[in-house]
Design a protein around this nucleic acid. Structure first.
Lengths: 345, 345
DNA sequence: CTGAAAGCGCTTACAG
DNA sequence: CTGAAAGCGCTTACAG
């Protein structure tokens, strides 16, 4: 219906093009393009007239045509996971970091029904100039093969290839904060729930081990294999409960794992933090969205996103040979809430 | 680096095109196009040779060129909110419903730094053939203006315009289930936390009122203005606690609101469900991801998404005048967990 | 089954 | 500041 009521002279059902606007205003199509690219070469008066007419005709620039004709792509492709609340926060950060560069981001989701390879291929098919991958799980070789020459920035996962930039939080410093907090409360028997097959899982476990060593806790801490989901945390809790003697504190790979753990503990009448302290990792919004709000190592999604965009834009702008790739490690902080307290006697 | 090592004869740094593949295989470019569109007109042998060569050259079809040249768009644009976990579940459902139609979905996020109008405009600029809007907040007039003739399917919000399809859960039936459950447990003094300015907020309140009336609870229920976030739920809890006499049960507009409510209640030592029962709405994953897992009215994201895709595909396929638009109302179920129990004496 | 040609709506380079 | 022309990589219609 609507498009039959436009005031322009173009045929019903056809979207207006730059040519339509040019005809209406009485200028060339190139000039309309100049106005929309915000390029030099049009008077303020013309510029305004073009924009007004475009608005009146309901014109929206055809992104496919722009992208196809442009010599250099300036869009940043983002692959994120639908089931990671933290990725939602990172997306927010990416939009904040590109607020003055509208429509720079092209999104591609990873879900149970769409694997990471498909997500990356889609971004390549849109000819993004750089890729930002949130918590990628594929091997670096796979990532490099799929991105086929497009610069890649990995967020929340360290990479070893010289062809991939990465931005991560400082796990060692985060674990040190967590252990500072726990030891100051008198905890010594501490369990870490590791997620060895998750992206960044091994690195975080090593960070815990290093932090435990520097806190002279080597012989008192235990590492147990768990995972990145509530289910993994719940299973770990069941296992711990089955063994009789609980540790005095647990640090989980992430908030989701910690929540699953807390769920089972509370169901079994364990008082948190009186009998057991729990620390999560991420400080995603879910950490505070729980009846027993959780102490967590905070990763700052805004900063992670900002650095990722910065790196991607650098790669987009780079003309000559690629400049030296580099990793960025950002500090974490500890958000103390109500799942940590003095160690039981 | 990578693109300098391809085995093809095309220049370094340039992505291969259909023309490159055609030259390599010794066929015309049109034939390569036929193969990639899976159109009739190529022998199985040729087809295989083309696909093999494409794979070897690292060819990925240019989506911009495809979209620009195609006469009819077949892509579905999806606008979702970064901070709604339920939208992540709906996205999963959309991918499931289009699993056999790869790359049909184009995503556009709504976040604090990107309003809904920008999100829709972006989908229009990619020339999507239909739009699926998750929980849109804009007025219908605005939606119609921005979509400028592209068919729209609204998910989780009812629309009155004859030009917009919609798929929603049956709030009345959901509220009836919740009240069935509560009254069978002996509850009478029930508070509903409404989110009047949220998408679908007024409809859900009316559904509660109607369900309360049909349960003959008119004079015993109370409606209080709250909202869609944990913060809103927390404020409602504080207000309730300040008034002395608690109701025996609370139904919240959504799970997030219910979680904020539970948070404050638990902090104040209120035992749930012994002293107060709580029911959320959505049964999003967060409902089960909390130490006190929550009773909630379940909206099925898989079905919502499936019907939305079905409707969008119908609109894409429609050639003549638009067929009659229609709303779809899907049933809900009640997931009983541990925040509901017998009414206190 | 195959190929040559036109053209989608833009950006770009160039001549005024 | 302005306009005519070329062409990005595909799909489409058409002639063999």
């Amino acid at each position: 219906m609507l498009n039959r009521h436009t005031t322009s002279e173009h045929a019903a059902g056809r979207r207006p093009t730059m040519r339509d606007i040019a005809r209406e205003v009485g200028v060339s199509q190139s000039l309309v393009s100049i106005v929309f690219r915000d390029a030099p070469g049009a008077s303020d008066e013309t510029r305004q007239k073009v924009l007004e007419t475009a608005d009146r005709l309901g014109y929206v620039r055809n992104e496919s045509a722009r992208s196809l004709r442009s010599t250099r792509s300036t869009s940043i492709g983002v692959a994120f996971q639908t089931r990671q609340p933290f990725h939602g926060e990172l997306l927010d950060g990416l939009y904040a970091a590109t607020a003055d560069l509208p429509n720079r981001l092209v999104l591609s989701a990873v879900s149970d029904f769409r694997d990471e390879a498909a997500a990356i291929r889609s971004l390549v098919s849109y000819r993004c100039g750089a890729l930002v991958l949130l918590g990628p799980r594929l091997s670096e070789d796979e990532i490099l093969r799929l991105s086929s020459g497009i610069p890649v920035v990995s967020v929340a996962r360290r990479c070893s290839s010289p062809n991939v930039d990465w931005v991560v939080s400082d796990d060692f410093q985060g674990m040190s904060l967590a252990l500072d907090h726990l030891t100051s409360l008198g905890h010594r028997r501490i369990v870490y729930l590791s997620a060895p097959i998750s992206p960044g899982g091994r690195e975080r476990q090593h960070a815990f081990e290093d932090a435990a060593e520097s806190h002279r806790l080597d012989t008192e801490v235990t590492i147990r294999t768990s995972g990145m989901t509530e289910q993994d945390g719940a299973e770990a809790a069941t296992a711990l409960l089955g063994e009789g003697a609980l540790p005095s504190a647990v640090i989980a790979f992430n908030d989701r794992c910690a929540l699953g753990l807390l769920d089972v503990l509370v169901r079994h009448g364990i008082r948190v933090p009186d009998e057991l302290s729990v620390i999560g990792f991420d400080d995603s919004e879910i950490a505070s969205r729980t009846p027993i709000s959780m102490t967590s190592v905070r990763q700052d999604p805004t900063s992670l996103a900002q650095f990722a965009v910065e790196r991607a834009l650098q790669r987009l702008a780079a003309t000559g040979p690629a400049n030296t790739p580099r990793g960025t490690i950002l500090p974490t902080s500890l958000t103390v809430r109500s799942t940590t307290g003095p160690a039981p006697r």
